[in-house]
């Protein structure tokens, strides 16, 4: 369970999050939507313990992340996988070594075992042909998939996705959505997905939360969001130029 209680966060006197309050249940797919710069990545970084809130608490499975020692942060992070917005691959390692890195560094398995796990993830994300390529030789969408493969290689209980389908073609997007759903179904993974892709949001979400000017305007099921009475939500999901959203 991931709990945000009255979380506020500002950078250099600019308030990004104002009293954000929500709870993500175990095994849920929680989608966060909102404008560019609204603070979606900032929320994920709070969950991962990279930022501490100025006010309020971030609690992961009943353990407070903010103010925790490095050892506790490390323990909490071990349960998590994070797909970063740009993939965040190490440019001197090829695709295979990038994916296997967490296993190799912590000697979590034998060489053969690691090769087997990596092959399995490569196949899962249809990257087998790219296994020996360097990050500079593959497209942005592929980097994202490699980043995802690396995020799930340690079988985390919680996966944080920062725009998993941006830069992917519609078919590949649907495949990633299917993968997110499958991990929930088969492994009971809790997912927090930041996205601009409304099709994908409707497809995967148990609940959708809309972040606007630092506040959660609405949190609801896809149907509730679709039929929302909030002008802001309606304008955002329909992509209307005219409406209450300030440019």
């Amino acid at each position: 369970m991931i709990e945000f209680s009255n979380v506020s966060k500002g950078f250099e006197s600019r308030k990004i999050l104002k009293d954000v309050d929500f709870t993500i249940r175990d095994g849920e797919i929680f989608v966060i939507i909102g404008q560019s710069g609204a603070g979606k990545t900032t929320i994920l970084r709070h969950i991962a313990g990279f930022y501490d809130p100025d006010n309020g608490d971030v609690v992961i499975d009943s353990v407070k992340m903010n103010g925790a020692s490095n050892r506790i942060r490390k323990k909490l992070r071990e349960k998590m996988g994070f797909l970063f917005q740009g993939g965040a691959l190490l440019n001197w390692l090829n695709v295979r070594d990038n994916i296997g890195l967490p296993l190799v560094e912590h000697r979590l398995a034998s060489k053969d075992e690691i090769a087997r796990i990596v092959d399995e993830k490569l196949a899962l994300l249809q990257l087998t042909d790219a296994a020996d390529k360097m990050p500079s030789e593959i497209s942005g969408g592929m980097k994202k998939r490699v980043g995802l493969a690396r995020a799930i290689v340690r079988n985390p209980e919680i996966i944080l996705y920062d725009e998993p389908t941006s830069g992917l073609d519609p078919v590949m997007s649907a495949r990633i959505d299917e993968l997110i759903l499958r991990m929930k179904r088969e492994l009971g993974v809790t997912s927090v997905v930041v996205t601009h892709d409304m099709n994908s949001a409707y497809r995967i979400a148990d609940r959708i939360a809309m972040l606007y000017s630092g506040e959660m305007v609405q949190i609801g099921t896809p149907d509730e969001i679709r039929t929302s009475e909030s002008g802001i939500v309606q304008q955002f999901i329909s992509g209307n130029i005219h409406g209450p959203i300030k440019p």
Partner: peptide
């Protein structure tokens, strides 16, 4: 470059210590 493209964070996420690594 690693810092601004979140690669350092990715290392921390994998519990890999950037100082050692």
């Amino acid at each position: 470059t690693m810092k601004v493209s979140e690669e350092i964070d990715a290392l921390e996420m994998m519990s890999i210590d950037p100082v050692r690594f």
